[in-house]
Amino acid sequence: MQDDDINTEGVVKKFMFVNRRAPYGTVYALEGLEMVLIAAAFEQDVSVVFMDDGVYQLKKGQDTKAVNMKNFSPTFRALDGYDVEKLYVEKESLEARGLSPADLVVPVEVLSADELGTLMAEQDVVMTA
């Protein structure tokens, strides 16, 4: 995309990005975040879901200095500025890991698997990483 405003007035689709992997062990989480930012830059209607080990991406207090990798958890706090406001966490995944919303770097909406499934069925595009 150029810096000028081309491509910003087009079709808006409902995109859902489903994050299922822990950060750092694999590159899926970072690449998934990149996809979210790109979809948001194109002003799409973006929802982001964190389930299974994906909820660990949002864990507060990440410190990657000793493993010499980039800590990308602060970037989730930038999503608001990208107008990505629909962040969902699956209740079952959170509970299985002994976590609560207070353990996460951004405010999220906690939904049951059933509710998330309903939301997923309403999307135009669903991508999982």
């Binding site: 810096d3 910003t8 930012l37 948001a40 830059a41 002003e43 980039k70 800590n71 990308f72 602060p74 970037t75 706090r77 930038a78 500025g81 990208y82």
Partner: peptide, 13 residues
Amino acid sequence: EYQIAPAIRVLTK
């Protein structure tokens, strides 16, 4: 603060 370079629209805002 956020560990990314913002897109133009986000920067402007």
